[in-house]
Simulated assay, not measured.
Amino acid sequence: MKLGILFSGQGAQNAGMGLDLYQAVPAYKATVDQASNILGYDLQEVANDDVKIKQTAYAQPAILTMSNAILNALGDTLPTPVAGLGLSLGEYSALSASGALDFDQAVAIIKDRGMYMQTVGEANPGKMVAVMGNDQQLIVDVLTTLQADGKQVYPANYNTFAQLVIGGVASDVDIAVAALTEAGIQRMVELPVSGAFHTPLLTDAATQLTKRLSDETFKETNYPVYSNTTSEPFTKEAMFETLTEQIISPTYFAQAMKKMLDLGVDTFLEVGPSDTLIKFAKKIAPKDVKRYAITDLESFNAFKEILLAEGENV
């Protein structure tokens, strides 16, 4: 098994996430309790709260913790990954799992990052829309024309080679949707988010995060972790710059996943509250690449059985 681990991003959260794992798997519970001590509140209780878990400030620590808690619970049954990749917030989960950040350090950073993004997002409300279509250059060209006319709308997430999320000022995104429809785009879906993430509307949050990360110490990853911002592996030397640029830069998830496949990854595992990234993988990876997601106790036990069987066959 040449394993590539995918770490869920914001938007994957749901009320009750991880509760069955918390109740049944001691190593999972220990990780969540560790995070609760750092955060100053009961994280599992927050994860069970339908109102709080939708808020950026709470969702980000909850998702990061769940992803790391799943890997901690798998323990030695999990082979060393060939590479890791997280979507936006998920990059911090990936960096923590790979040793570049200590878990306590990652939770403390994400507590502040989530707060910055929620506050700035509320002060600069925006909209994000997923645009489906194979001609992504057409989408970029339409946005470039609108930007030249003073509109604040930008490419934000290259999720697959046929899905590009755009974001910006709500009224300008509406204008872009109309222009894209006129250009022949037939399918677009508005996303349930509170701000235009990965666009210049989050500049104030990036400024705050830059100051917050200035005294942090980073280490080398134990295996390659790909950056959404550069679609290249993180390096210790560039980690600060890459993470501070990330909030206002487009994510190149599809391009990074393609490079993981070039490394020989033959199995993808997503860890977190949903299987969204595995669905992206279905659009990007060849059909013979295996895909799994651990989102709850049932899927945890099922994948652990697969790992144990692999171990017996080695």
Rank of each mutant, 00 (worst) to 15 (best):
L6T: 04
L6G: 07
F7S: 04
F7P: 01
F7H: 02
F7I: 05
S8R: 05
S8E: 01
G9K: 00
G9M: 03
G9S: 01
Q10I: 02
Q10N: 04
Q10M: 01
Q10Y: 06
G11Q: 07
A12G: 09
A12W: 05
A12T: 03
A12C: 05
A12Q: 00
Q13R: 08
Q13F: 08
Q13S: 10
N14K: 13
N14L: 10
N14M: 04
N14P: 02
N14Y: 10
N14R: 09
N14F: 06
N14W: 12
N14A: 05
A15G: 02
A15R: 14
A15P: 08
A15S: 14
G16L: 00
G16M: 00
G16A: 02
G16C: 01
M17P: 03
M17G: 10
M17N: 05
M17E: 09
M17F: 04
G18A: 06
G18E: 02
L19V: 06
L19I: 02
L19T: 08
D20K: 01
D20S: 07
D20P: 03
D20R: 02
L21H: 05
L21T: 00
L21D: 00
L21K: 07
L21W: 00
Y22V: 01
Y22I: 03
Q23I: 10
Q23P: 07
Q23L: 07
A24Q: 12
A24C: 04
V25S: 07
V25E: 13
V25T: 12
V25D: 11
V25P: 11
P26W: 11
P26T: 08
A27Y: 06
Y28S: 11
Y28L: 02
Y28W: 14
Y28G: 07
K29Y: 04
K29F: 02
K29M: 10
K29V: 11
K29D: 12
K29H: 12
K29P: 14
K29W: 05
T31R: 10
T31F: 09
T31V: 09
T31G: 01
V32T: 11
V32G: 12
D33C: 05
D33H: 08
D33W: 11
Q34Y: 12
Q34A: 12
A35V: 06
A35P: 13
A35M: 13
A35D: 14
A35Q: 08
S36K: 15
S36G: 14
S36N: 14
S36T: 12
I38M: 03
I38G: 09
I38T: 15
I38N: 10
L39C: 11
L39W: 14
G40Y: 04
G40M: 06
G40Q: 12
Y41I: 15
Y41E: 07
Y41L: 13
Y41D: 13
Y41N: 14
Y41G: 11
D42G: 13
D42T: 10
D42C: 08
D42A: 08
D42I: 00
D42W: 06
L43G: 04
L43M: 01
E45H: 15
E45M: 10
E45W: 14
E45N: 15
V46D: 07
A47D: 14
A47I: 00
N48V: 11
N48Y: 02
N48I: 00
D49T: 03
D50G: 05
D50R: 14
D50P: 08
D50H: 13
V51Q: 03
V51W: 00
V51K: 09
K52A: 12
K52M: 08
I53G: 01
I53P: 06
I53E: 03
